[in-house]
Simulated assay, not measured.
Amino acid sequence: MADKLRTLQNLEHLQSRYLGTGHADTTKHEWSSNLHRDSYASYIGHPALLEYMSIGMGESREKVRAAMVEKMVRPVGVKNVEEEG
């Protein structure tokens, strides 16, 4: 019983610290939005990866960075109303 309680407390701690882990009330849209935002933030935060992606896209690094920052506003589109329930 103590192990189960400790496991639940650890899970709650992780969920409060890292948004990407989600929780029971997290919708699919919220989870995928967090995942995409975390990915864009990682791409922007690693200059070598951003440079690699900009070369592949044939754009300047700053244009690619600006496009990714804009995509962080609404990364997966409009929330589906039917999803709430």
Score class of each variant (00 low, 15 high):
R17Q: 09
L49S: 14
L50K: 08
L49E: 15
I44L: 13
E70R: 09
E62L: 05
H23K: 07
R61G: 00
R61T: 15
E82D: 12
D3Y: 02
R74Q: 13
D38K: 05
Q9V: 00
Y52G: 00
E62N: 07
Y43F: 15
H46A: 10
G56W: 06
H36Q: 10
G56H: 11
E51C: 02
K79M: 03
K4H: 04
M57W: 07
M72A: 13
M68P: 00
A24Q: 14
L5R: 10
D38F: 04
N10Q: 11
R37W: 06
M57K: 15
H36K: 13
R6W: 02
R6S: 05
V73D: 14
H13P: 00
Q15H: 02
S54P: 09
Y40H: 06
K71Q: 12
A41W: 00
L49M: 09
L14C: 06
E51P: 02
R17E: 07
R74D: 14
K79H: 05
M57Y: 13
M1R: 08
Y18S: 01
H46C: 05
G22Q: 03
M1H: 09
S33A: 11
H29W: 15
L50D: 12
Y40N: 15
L8E: 03
K28G: 02
A2N: 11
I55F: 01
M53Q: 09
E30T: 01
E59W: 06
L14K: 07
M1P: 09
A41H: 08
R6K: 06
V73K: 13
M57Q: 14
D25G: 08
G85E: 12
E59H: 03
S39M: 12
T7Y: 07
Y52R: 12
K4T: 03
G58I: 13
T26F: 01
K28R: 14
N80I: 09
